[in-house]
Structure formats: C-alpha cells, structure tokens
Simulated scan of single mutants.
Amino acid sequence: MGEKVRVGLIYGGKSGEHDVSLSTAFAVLGEFDYTKYAIKPFYITKEGKWRSGSELSAPPQSKDELRFTGSGGTLSDSSAAVAPLFTGLDGASGEIDVLFPLLHGTFGEDGTMQGLFEVANLPYVGAGVLASAVGMDKVFMKKMFAQEGLPQCVFRHFNRTQWDKDPSFFIMEIEIALGYPCFIKPANLGSSVGISKARNRDELIAAVDYAFRFDRKVIVEEFVDAREIEVSVLGNDEPKASVPGEISASNEFYDYKAKYIDGKSTMHIPANIPDTAAEAIREMAVRAFQAIDGSGLSRVDFFLRKQDGQIFINEVNTMPGFTPFSMYPLMWKETGLSYRELLDALIDLAFARHAEKQRIDYGGGVTI
C-alpha cells in the first residue's frame, strides 16, 4: 500500500435513488482528508454504464462534476472503467486499496454490487452480500426481526402475480388485520420512494399499483401513531450504537421530499426520550444489526408509540445517506465521532473484515 490509501468511490447507480447517491457522494467527498486518501471516482449512470474520473486531490465544487459531463474528469464507459477494480491489490500496479460504495437502492445496496466486490476479493466499506440483500428486502428483513424476537408492526406482503390473481383476498386481509390508514411500500427500495398512505380501499388499490412501479413485491404495514426514532450503528462483529435521534417530518410522513428536498424536517439529536427507552432502542439496534449479519454501518429505525411508549423496530438501512440532512453522521457527531473520523473508521472496518475473510479456507482442504 502506498503513502496514501487509494479509495475507489462508487456512486450513482441504476436505481430510483440515483440522485440521492450523488448527494451522498458530494457530501462525503467534501469531508475526506486528501492528505491521507487518494480518491478515484467511479460514476454509474442511470442506464448502468460505468464512468471513471481522474484521481481527486481536492473535493469537487458541484455535483455536476461527479457525472464527468464537463472537463472535470476523464470519461471511460463500462468495462474500461470497471477494469481498475480488478487490478492486483498487493503490488505497486494496484490502483485501488479499498472500495467505498455510496450506492442507494437497487443494484447497489441490495447485495449485487457487494457480490462483485467479493468475487474480485476487494476490501469494501459496508455490509456484505447477505446483510445487504436482507436489509434491502423489507419482507425478509421483518422475518429476520421476528426470528430475533424484535417487536414490530403488523404487516402483509404479496407479489404482482398474487395480487393480479386475487386482489380481493389481499384487500380483505389488509382491512381485517391492519385496517386504515396503512402504509404501502415497494419491498425492495429505500429513501421512501414509492411509499403511500392509504385511508380507504380506493387509495389502497391506487397505492399498490403505484408501489408495483418500483418492485415486483409490495409490503403493507399498519399505521402506528408514533414518534420516529433512529440510531446509527458502527462496527463489525462488536458493533456500537450512537445516541438516538428523532425525526419530525415536514410532510404527513417522512417521505422522499421531506428527507432530501425541502430540508424542513426537524431533527432532534439526541432524542428527547426517557433514558430507559433510549437504552432499549440502542440495544435493539445492535441486535437487529447482528440479526442480518451486518458490518460496517447501518441506520436502524424505530417507532415509539405515543399511547404507551411501546417500541417497534421499523427497518435497517445498510447504506444510509450522508447528505447534509442525513441522520447517520449527525447522530455519531453527537455521540463524539466527527464526520471525518467516521469515514476513517468505516475504511478501517473494511480492511479488518477483509483481513478476517482471508483466513477462510474456501477450498475446504479437499484434494481430488
């Protein structure tokens, strides 16, 4: 490894959260210590094409530079851009020491990209294949939570084929088990894309049709009159949880606009909740992180029911945003870890996990 750690920063992606990824990348690039790291940017277009930029010695001045549409970087599509990822890392010819994926949603946060890194035997920041896939699929995530004994809201799920075959069955089941209002979500998407709140049957049907635009599987969750509490988790086999934070959404619920556009949602860090509730939420966050075999980082979201203080786990986000409005780095800042220190920790954790995996005998010692 050279004097500087060579970081391959991957962002964009063939996902509905493409623009969120660009915002995250722009924020992260503004905080890196360029005396310690050499940053090689890799941009994935909305069509799935890879573009590699020139090595950065200073943060970009605008998000437009990250697309390499001007003179700020060299354009190299597809295989030519991906090739440096597979250059030998042990010798001087290696261009990348560690990969830092800042990809949200499908084809980036769902285990597909992590599988590419694993096959290439590259150190990378964040969750592995299993945790990424489970963390992306809300149905399997909730099944893992149930196995762990974590309390959660009532939900139902179905795929497009099942819904088209007998929508009346699922409508009846939802109305009996969940009632109105309820929330309808694509099972495999983040950043609140495709989410709707239904107050009656007509709105439910419209919301399901809308959610199917973004995924073949839909999940419907009961409405809980609750405060939204979040916790940041950092680590590998011995993860730690930050102080909890609370979101007061600018819209009716914490949707895409409230998260990334208007900047009007209020964040309270630390959350103004009883110490016993805060400790219980932090403990549950670590359990959820371990239940999906998490590594690196995750943000774990909870509901704190207003009526009686009951805690329900909502979901784990294995690649939370790092935008100026994002809770993950802000909660660690309040806990005592700065943005720059957080980036250092994530890269250290990536190297540690990679070193641990090199101890595995994948051949099983079998000779034929």
Rank of each mutant, 00 (worst) to 15 (best):
V220K: 00
G179E: 04
I171P: 13
A177H: 12
A177G: 09
K333E: 11
Q61V: 12
K4Y: 07
I44E: 09
E175N: 11
G263M: 09
R51K: 15
S196F: 06
T35Q: 11
G91A: 02
R359L: 15
G53T: 01
K49L: 06
I184E: 08
G149N: 13
G135L: 00
F289E: 05
S192H: 04
G263P: 15
S21V: 02
K240Q: 15
G149S: 06
F68G: 03
D209S: 10
L99A: 08
V366C: 01
R156M: 09
D90Y: 15
P274C: 08
L9Y: 01
V7S: 05
S57Q: 11
N188A: 09
A211S: 11
E203N: 13
T74D: 05
S265N: 05
A146E: 15
D361G: 15
C182W: 06
M136T: 03
V119C: 08
T74K: 13
N159W: 07
M319D: 03
F183A: 02
N188M: 03
R282P: 14
Y254E: 01
E65F: 00
A277Y: 12
V82T: 13
F302R: 12
V218T: 02
L116S: 06
Y11R: 08
E341W: 05
G105D: 00
E341K: 07
T106E: 13
M113R: 09
F145M: 10
K49V: 09
D19C: 03
L89I: 13
G363E: 10
N188K: 14
D237I: 14
F155W: 13
D255C: 02
V82K: 12
E356M: 13
I205P: 02
P324F: 08
V134M: 14
E222M: 14
S265F: 02
F32S: 05
T266A: 07
G8C: 01
